[in-house]
Amino acid sequence: MPAPLNAATVGPAPRARGWRTGGWVLIALLPLFLCAAYLVPFLGVANWSITLPEPGLGQYARVATDPGVHSVIWRTLRICALVTLLAVILAYLLTYVWIHGNRPMRILAEICIIVPFWISVLSRAFGWLVVLYNRGILNTWAQDLGILSEPLTLVRNDVGVVIGMVHFLVPFAVFPIASVMRGLDTRVLMAARGMGAGRLRTFWEVFVPMTMPGIFGSAVIVFVFSLGFFVTPALLGGGRSIMIAEYVYVQIFQASNWGLAAALSVTMIVIVSLLLLALMRLTRVEKLVR
């Protein structure tokens, strides 16, 4: 027979206390590290923006008035808007097939989305260079087939930048749309079809409106991402089509104008914060992430 239960007493655990303290120690490490390596340096950058080359708000005045800076900002906004539009449309199509297609379609769509997502931005920009430059695949084919007599200039201008950025951003645009499409009740769609609405009509009048939050979230995310974009524009714009991020790089490493670079950085943070605040106001971010 097993021993009686009340034989030995064990007593309370010796080291048990201190969950709260321990928990805060665990929490604190990362914010402390980021304070030292990110927040304080950011304050340093903000300080640069009002002290270099001389104290004052001169650099912000330049951001606000200099036509050179303005043309860069306008080009950035224009390109980003176009990129956002194209990336969201492509992402929407792919997601539609990825979520609602049959199994082979789903797998193919997944490969098209996931593989580029994991491939380095450099390899992808380089790939577009190979496709688009004057003696690249596209121009060679078009000339061989007699469609073009002269090569089209597709890189070292806005066209190349837009193509490269759209390509980079489509996978990011997919995720918010996918999370909304997954949550859709497809019985509504079947019901619409059942009530005699055609395929196209069901798509435009039922499906698209129901996925609007995903489209919207995706657009904001892509736009915010594209604003600070550096590598793709630098490689495919070839120094001609300069966007704000490359402009900042040039200010630091070629013009040695740290003050302007810092002022532009602070301005970008402010713009992005405003955009994200608008996003949070208009949709629940958690829904887009899940």
């Binding site: 097993p2 021993a3 239960l5 030995a8 064990v10 007593g11 655990a13 010796p14 080291r15 048990a16």
Partner: peptide, 23 residues
């Protein structure tokens, strides 16, 4: 587990655990 967190040594622990499981 509750014995382990109390730092009880392996032998005693085994006895108590097996008595309890038998119970």
């Amino acid at each position: 587990f509750p014995l382990r967190v109390r730092g009880m040594e392996r032998g005693t622990r085994r006895t108590l655990v097996h008595d309890m499981l038998a119970r």
